[in-house]
């Protein structure tokens, strides 16, 4: 029994640390949805780009992810801006059908380009900076702690920008009321472009940090799983609230790791699949009974 509790709390701790990256990745999705009302189905592909940024920066320049995150952010914002101008700008008033398909196609384009440029193989790198011993509960590599701290810093600076910055406030105004914001003289198109590129920037940055958790899992098709996880987390946090999403990320990390340990106790089932099943079950239940999210404000 004692063994179980040790393992359980160790898993929860790891889940919470991973949850910070989950939160960051979902903030991007949530920001784009709350401003543009577009679900970015190509979300995971952008994270994959971030993972490759981390890989190449480490491989070529020796930059660890906590430094290459700035490059990832810049790459993401550029990509986001380009895709907004080329595609999304023309679809802001279109039906879900077209935006879902368009973002999915962008995802495929990114995945296939990555495969074309860098091949289909799994890649990875290891950044050895020591570890923290917490016997008997867990041994946590310092890299993961840095990832936790970085994502909190990014989230907090975004929060400050939203609350204090001029353009941040404009984004909040558009989130609340598109037409009202237009009447107040806010350049809604400009805000769309800004939110889309910041959203993609956050997504790519989170993919960058993710490499600290999946040391050898970098490949062109790694993103699909994270798209689906981000959906669940976004719904958990209320879909159109980036802050809800960040905290829901932690919650999801806890739920994921906790239920994995618990399902492992039941004989005759696959704990990995059941954990995923439970996540989607949760998604449906929340959509049904509390569509504003567990952490939604309203």
């Amino acid at each position: 029994m004692r063994q179980f509790w040790i393992q359980f709390s160790g898993n929860l701790l790891n889940g919470m640390i991973l949850g910070s990256v989950y939160g960051l990745m979902t903030m991007g999705l949530s920001l784009i949805f709350s401003v543009l009302k577009i679900v970015n189905v190509g979300h995971g592909a952008f994270m994959m780009i971030g993972a490759y940024v981390a890989f190449w920066m480490f491989h070529l320049l020796g930059l660890p992810p906590i430094l290459s995150i700035f490059i990832a952010l810049a790459v993401g914002m550029t990509l986001g801006y380009c895709f907004f101008q080329l595609v999304i700008r023309r679809l802001t008033a279109a039906a879900e059908l077209t935006t879902l398909l368009a973002t999915f196609a962008i995802g495929i384009l990114l995945e296939e380009s990555a495969r074309f440029l860098w091949g289909p193989d799994y890649r990875g790198f290891s950044w050895n900076v020591g570890r923290i011993m917490l016997p008997p509960i867990a041994i946590i590599p310092l890299g993961k702690i840095y990832a936790l701290i970085s994502s909190i810093i990014v989230a907090v600076s975004l929060y400050i920008w939203f609350k204090k910055g001029r353009s941040g406030s404009a984004i909040r105004a558009v989130m609340e009321d598109r037409e009202g914001a237009t009447v107040c003289g806010i350049n809604v198109d400009g805000i769309y472009a800004l939110s889309f590129s910041v959203g993609i920037g956050l997504t790519v940055a989170s993919g960058n940090l993710l490499t600290l958790f999946v040391p050898v899992g970098i490949n062109p098709y790694m993103g699909g799983v994270y798209t689906l996880k981000a959906f669940v987390i976004a719904v958990l946090g209320g879909l159109s609230s980036p802050w809800g999403a960040f905290f829901a990320g932690f919650l999801f990390g806890l739920i994921e790791n906790g239920s994995y340990t618990l399902f492992g106790l039941v004989p005759g089932i696959e704990p990995f699949s059941m954990t995923q099943f439970f996540a989607f079950f949760l998604l449906l239940m929340i959509l049904l009974w509390k569509p504003t999210g567990l952490l939604g404000a309203k």
């Binding site: 949805f33 009302k37 577009i38 679900v39 879900e96 879902l100 689906l228 959906f231 669940v232 719904v235 879909l239 399902f263 005759g268 089932i269 696959e270 704990p271 990995f272 699949s273 059941m274 995923q276 099943f277 996540a279 989607f280 079950f281 998604l283 449906l284 959509l287 049904l288 569509p291």
Partner: peptide, 26 residues
């Protein structure tokens, strides 16, 4: 009962959830 993007996300959830349930309980 859901509309728009919420409906799309819910149906993705059903698809994936069902698949993992099949695999999970064998």
């Amino acid at each position: 009962r859901l509309r728009g993007a919420y409906f799309a996300i819910a149906t993705v959830g059903v698809n994936e959830g069902f698949r993992f349930l099949l695999e999970g309980i064998k």
